[in-house]
Write a protein that binds this DNA or RNA. Structure first.
Length: 560
RNA sequence: GGCCCCAUCGUCUAGUUAGGCCCAGGACAUCGGGUUUUCAUCCCGAAAACAGGGGUUCAAAUCCCCUUGGGGUCACCA
């Protein structure tokens, strides 16, 4: 374990000698700032209530959670609803549900509260206003009366001259009396941070290393809107500082926001957290950030197609029209289609992080134990549906039979294939089918592909291609089926082993190859060309069904 | 376009911080063979990468520089 302790963990708070991020000599530390000596790792995830949980966001949340748990620290959930008009509980519900489903608990946040609340930014306006007032008073921010049109014109002018745009700062030239007059007449204004243009901003990122930005290239960012509400960059800094977040672990698209935030930290005299900008989750087979806005493109992607196909095959059958509005960018998609939390967690953890050179399958406990920031990969990683399915297959196989039944039964019920899966004889059948499925059961909803065991004999649908190939176009198939059916009808032992024996004897007596009958038999009783082991299949269906189905199949050849 | 980040098999990655153990290891996917007188598994095997160019060095995937490519971000969004 100790040897695993990496550069970063050595730099975590509690070790004042190796605080690379304290190279900001210009920061004034309040003498009584306890947080300077805090040793608790506190991480946070701050989703905005969008109505769904993004799978990439989930990975970011997971890394935060892992780092907190690895260090015995706290994980905080905070809701970024500063720009929020929709129904909050409706928009937040699916997000919290995703955390609950995966078992990622939070120590502070919605539903659980905590000492550093409130945990909704919309309820923290006083804090933001107070900070802005402080910045204004200290001359580190200014009230800007420039209209959006003016700003736009300035930008265009700069771009015409091929120059980098910087605020003209006209409002700084205003006289005392003009300012008073503007304020009195309620002229619209925003508050901007006064960027110290002579600085270099340095960030020591746990994943990226040392990154520098030139402040002289940065426009003055708006920190307070005209309506008095804060912007993300302001709110996040104040919240992180006040909530004593030790490590800000977030996706790399935030790296370019970081200099603004560092300036705000400095202006407010706050200690900087350790930043860790992890790569974003990319779309399968690419390097582009996975985005809900590109769903139409994904539908055509060969890697992604399987997931959409699966959704189309499963969701309508369980009563979700239009796939229930679910797509593979959403965590809920995986939950509803029958993935296991273990598989999603394992897969997400391996996306951009590894334990060593060969370990693939890891329980959450194993991941927590071994998770360190220095093993995070720098490059963006594409979500790989095939590999995810492989993880899923592995974890599904770890489940007890009882658990598998538990996971699969709801699908059969929702699809109307069984009335009540808890009834003993129904449960027994489900159990036998699952045993017969063996590794064919990967995702819980896969059981729907074995509906032949649950539909009434007369409603069994025959796969056209398989029926034609194995029965219709096979010269001897019908005759053999007819003959073997008689034997099936007469036997009194319908166990898989006995049926195995029976068919082998039949084949021998007829002097034919197994292949000449078994395919036809399979299609006749199951309607499909592939399925579980033949004898398990017959045995589960039972004598009466097998006979009826063979008769029906033979009948169908005569009608055609 | 400015700024910033990134670069090992098709994909996810190990190896890069402390150069030699690497003519580069594992996994997924692919292909071939075997087992299963059915389907799926399973087993064995194959193919498959250090973006390019310069340096430094006895030695470079690893350090430095340049080029190229990919990506992110440039809001009174988060």
């Amino acid at each position: 374990m100790i040897s695993r302790l990496n550069r970063i963990s050595r730099e975590t708070p509690g070790c004042p000698e190796c605080f690379p991020r304290l190279s900001f000599t210009q920061i004034a530390f309040p003498a009584n700032d306890k947080s300077l000596f805090m040793s608790t790792v506190r991480t946070r995830f701050a989703p905005s209530p969008t109505g769904y949980m993004h799978i990439g966001g989930m990975r970011t949340a997971l890394f935060n959670w892992l780092w907190a748990r690895h260090n015995g620290g706290q994980f905080i959930l905070r809701i970024d609803d500063t720009d929020q008009e929709r129904n909050l509980s409706e928009a937040l519900g699916p997000i919290l549900q995703a955390f609950k489903w995966l078992g990622l608990d939070w120590d502070e946040g919605p539903e659980v509260g905590g000492e550093h609340g409130p945990y909704f930014q919309s309820e923290r306006n006083d804090l933001y206003r107070g900070a802005v007032d402080k910045l204004l008073a200290a001359g580190k921010a200014y009230r800007d009366y420039d209209t959006p049109e003016q700003i736009q014109a300035d930008r265009e002018a700069a771009s015409q001259e091929k120059k980098n745009y910087l605020n003209i700062r006209r409002s700084l030239e205003l006289t005392e009396s003009e300012l008073e007059q503007y304020a009195a007449e309620g002229r619209p204004s925003v508050v901007r941070l006064l960027v110290p243009r002579d600085q270099k901003i340095q960030i020591d990122d746990a994943v990226r290393g040392h990154v520098e930005f030139v402040a002289g290239l940065m426009p003055d960012p708006v920190i307070l809107r005209g309506n008095g509400t804060p912007l993300y960059n302001l709110a996040t800094v104040i919240d992180d500082a006040q909530m004593q977040i030790s490590h800000v672990i977030r996706a790399e698209e935030h790296l370019s926001n970081t200099p603004v935030q560092v300036l705000i930290y400095q202006a407010l005299g706050y200690e900087l957290p350790q930043f860790a900008h992890i790569p974003f989750v990319a779309a399968p087979g690419g390097k582009e950030k996975l985005s809900k806005r590109k769903l139409d493109k994904y539908r055509k992607s060969p890697q992604f197609k399987k997931m959409f196909d699966k959704a189309e095959a499963v969701f309508p059958r369980i009563g979700l029209e239009n796939a229930g509005g679910l797509d593979p960018v959403m965590v809920e998609y995986y939950e509803k289609i029958g993935y296991l939390p273990e598989a999603i967690l394992n897969s997400l953890a391996r996306l951009g992080w590894s334990l060593d050179d060969k370990t693939e399958f890891m329980s959450l406990d194993t991941i927590v134990e071994n998770f360190t920031l220095d093993r995070i990969v720098k490059a963006a990683a594409g979500l790989d549906p095939d590999k995810l399915l492989n993880f899923q297959s592995h974890w599904m196989n770890q489940l007890s039979l009882e658990d598998k039944i538990e996971h699969c039964s709801p699908y059969l019920e929702k699809a109307g294939l069984v009335q009540d899966a808890s009834q003993p004889e129904v449960k027994e059948r489900i159990s036998r089918v699952i045993v017969g499925m063996e590794d064919r059961l990967k995702v819980a909803s896969d059981i729907l592909e074995f509906d032949e065991f649950f539909v009434p004999d007369v409603q069994l649908e025959y796969d056209d291609k398989a029926f034609k190939k194995r029965i219709q176009k096979s010269e001897e198939a019908v005759a053999l089926l007819e003959k073997f059916k008689e034997q099936l009808a007469q036997t009194d032992d319908f166990s898989a082993a006995a049926l195995d024996h029976l068919l082998h004897e039949f084949v021998e007596a007829e002097g034919i190859g197994m292949g000449q009958i078994i395919h036809a038999l399979r299609v006749a009783v199951s309607g499909k060309g592939t399925g579980i082991g033949m004898f398990d299949c017959l045995s589960i269906l039972g004598q009466a069904s097998c006979v009826k189905r063979i008769d029906r199949a033979i009948g169908l050849t005569q009608n055609a």
